[in-house]
């Protein structure tokens, strides 16, 4: 029996879960707990093991080692239909020969609910996803966003211990994706379900999650709140993966910092760098130009290479000695300027 100190059983608990395909390690020794009502997102590039982990939780794949617990019950030997979970798949995966109502009723029938109760629940969840009146439509009569909302309703209707989201928005276009993202957020706040969400889109992860698990090469890089991850990235990988960054390769020796070609750089840091080669990362949004730069601690004389117009701001590609980086500025600027 797995329980935390206060005696509450976590909705989900993974212990030393591993999975390999032939010689390739897909997931290496994963340990994780999901609290009741928590929205946890697996974020990572493709091949990082996030989808494999989700599929093991869902029962579509078997872990090679370790154990999976849902609400204190060990489930890793059970097939999907014996687990208290429901998955929202990438393209909805609605049953094409069943109506919207029949799609939603399917899981309820499998759980042995009586007809009047099923009808009531179908109506209730359709209202929740704002698709009342769509009962008799077939999936091919729905738009992509509507399909995904039906899929959401179908999974929510069975009231599982955990909802699993397998990149549910990746097949939709941008405006619809944003709209549905807010919809999922609203549903989570109103209904408080426990959820595991898999995505490679960091803005989705930031907007939706209680906590984010950053995955890379089958392992966990960092587990933290969205704010914690963007404020204090735990590794170089996380820093690069979350948000845009400029990389400056530097060499520190004898208390001085130089670029790769030996040009001295006047750099004031809170913790002076040790001897050796370093990579300094900067958020382009933290770099200021010209007059705004005068209040900054570190400043650098630069040459402007070229400028891209990004719609809301200008991106300046800059060069200082051997360093190349960029920064964003809302207004067009003089070709030569000072930055910090």
């Amino acid at each position: 029996m797995i329980a935390d100190v206060s005696g509450h059983r976590p909705a989900l608990h993974l212990e030393n879960v591993r999975r390999r395909y032939g010689g390739i390690v897909a997931v290496r020794s994963l340990n994780l707990s999901l609290a009741q009502g928590e929205f946890l997102t697996f974020l990572g590039p493709s091949g990082s093991g996030k989808t494999t982990t989700l599929r093991m939780i869902g029962g579509f794949e078997q872990p090679d080692a370790g154990s999976i617990w849902i609400k204190g019950e060990r489930v890793d030997h059970l097939p999907p239909h014996r687990r208290d979970i429901a998955t929202i798949f990438q393209a909805g995966a609605l049953f094409p020969h069943k109506t919207v109502a029949e799609n939603i009723a399917y899981g309820l029938r499998m759980r042995g609910l009586q007809k009047p109760e099923i009808t009531a629940r179908v109506r209730e969840v359709l209202a929740v996803v704002r698709l009342s009146g769509f009962e008799e439509r077939y999936p091919n009569q729905l738009s992509g966003g509507q399909k995904q909302r039906v899929a959401l309703a179908r999974s929510m209707a069975v009231r599982p211990a955990i909802l699993l989201f397998d990149e549910p928005l990746s097949a939709l276009d941008l405006s619809l994706r944003l709209q549905l993202r807010s919809e999922i957020k609203r549903l989570h706040e109103e209904h408080g379900f426990s959820a595991i969400y898999v995505t490679h889109d960091q803005s989705e992860a930031m907007a939706l999650s209680s906590r984010i698990v950053i995955m890379n090469r089958g392992g966990i890089e960092q587990v933290d709140t969205p704010l914690g991850i963007s404020r204090a990235p735990a590794s170089e990988f996380v820093y690069n993966f979350i948000g845009e960054s400029c990389c400056m390769p530097l060499v520190a020796s004898g208390g001085e910092v130089r670029d790769r070609q030996g040009g001295a750089i006047d750099l004031k840091l809170h913790t002076p760098p040790r001897e050796g080669e370093w990579r300094l990362y900067l958020r382009p949004s933290r770099i200021k130009m010209a007059a705004a730069a005068e209040a900054c601690e570190n400043s650098l004389e630069v040459q402007v290479g070229f400028v891209e117009f990004l719609g809301e701001s200008y991106r300046y590609h800059l060069r200082a000695g051997a360093l190349e980086f960029f920064c964003d500025n809302p207004a067009p600027h003089m070709p030569r300027s000072e930055i910090a």
């Binding site: 579509f60 999907p80 049953f95 020969h97 399917y106 499998m110 759980r111």
Partner: peptide
């Protein structure tokens, strides 16, 4: 046949026999 639709059926609580007759065959 879309594999995910078959998985969705199991996911919603239907065993393999049920899934075959109610989901796969009609498709």
């Amino acid at each position: 046949v879309d594999k995910r639709i078959v998985e969705a059926s199991g996911d919603l609580g239907a065993g393999p026999v049920r899934t075959f007759f109610e989901i796969v065959l009609p498709m």
